[in-house]
Design a binder for these strands. Structure first.
Length: 275
DNA sequence: AAAACTACCTGAGTGC
DNA sequence: TGCACTCAGGTAGTTT
């Protein structure tokens, strides 16, 4: 599932191949994604791609007249291809470049989007209310503590909220809580400050490690060159129900929290004790 | 305000 | 072999 490491892996993979290139043609084969593909996409031919940036899980394709906001949803991937490479089912958008290559957007579940923004990106409705980037200074133990104060919601839900911190989806929320030795169902407001500090460190650590491995490929995600990400092999709890905890050997448990599959070690991740 | 829940979509997997 | 069913999940939007 594309979470922050998968989006960052994609950004790093495509940036050298598309930055500075001019769009020669665009082929939108399926307009019906999460929202209809923005009409402005049709004005891309002739324009130069200035940069590929990322905000949260959005890829920002900067072009001369504005910015394309690409979200990979749950099953999307962007791939660089030779035009001769045959199209696969669910290849919805082709961006043909002036270097003889093309960027292909593949998304079986069509939960992604290709939207358009002009001017100041941060004021776009989808980006305006986003919290800090997890790997930047704005995400800190005090900031997380402020977000948790008085909240009864499970800590896992809170770190998955985009207003609190962006980019943490179900996989990395599970992994980070395990690294921080914190029970995922603990009410956010009851988690001691020291445990929140550990959690901030764990979130950063797991995201950085995954980026280094090219992200996590569970089912659909592929890198820009068609290769899978290799972080799956290093997952400590996600989709490991019944298997031994790599730390203590206890069986990993699976429960549902906030309608999401949640994995944790009952030995290593105790309920926080009152302070 | 916060929490709970729904919709969107397809492929993979399961049970009969 | 095939049909019916369930599940996975990011996130905006709605309801409680």
């Amino acid at each position: 599932m594309p979470e922050l490491p998968e989006v960052e892996t994609t950004r790093c993979g495509i940036a050298p191949h598309v930055t500075g290139r001019r769009v020669v043609a665009i082929d939108v084969r399926q307009r019906q994604l999460r929202w209809p593909v923005a009409a402005e996409i049709d004005t891309l031919p002739g324009q130069r791609i200035l940069a590929v940036e990322r905000r949260a899980k959005y890829l920002l394709l900067r072009v001369e007249s504005g910015t394309v906001l690409v979200h990979l949803g749950m099953s999307g991937s962007l791939r660089l291809a030779e035009p001769a490479l045959s199209l696969r089912k669910h290849d919805h958008i082709r961006l043909i470049l002036d270097n003889g290559r093309e960027l292909r957007y593949h998304d079986p579940r069509r939960f992604g989007c290709w939207l358009w923004a002009q001017g100041d990106i941060s004021s776009h409705p989808l980006l305006a209310r986003l919290g800090p980037e997890p790997l930047e200074r704005g995400f800190s133990a005090p900031a997380l503590a402020a977000a948790c104060a008085g909240r009864k919601a499970p800590i896992k839900n809170v770190i998955m909220e985009a207003q609190v911190v962006v980019g943490v989806g179900n996989i990395y929320a599970n992994e980070a809580l395990h690294l921080a030795r914190l029970h995922p169902a603990a009410p956010a407001g009851d988690v001691p400050a020291e445990a929140l500090r550990a959690l901030v460190r764990s979130i950063r650590q797991v995201l950085r490690r995954s980026i280094r491995q090219g992200g996590t490929t569970l089912r659909d995600f592929l890198r820009e060159d068609g290769q899978p990400g290799y972080f799956r092999q290093q997952l400590l709890v996600y989709e490991r129900a019944g298997q031994p905890c790599r730390g203590c050997g206890a069986a990993i448990e699976r429960v549902v929290i906030g309608q999401r599959a949640t994995y944790y070690c009952p030995q290593c991740q105790p309920w926080p004790t009152g302070t």
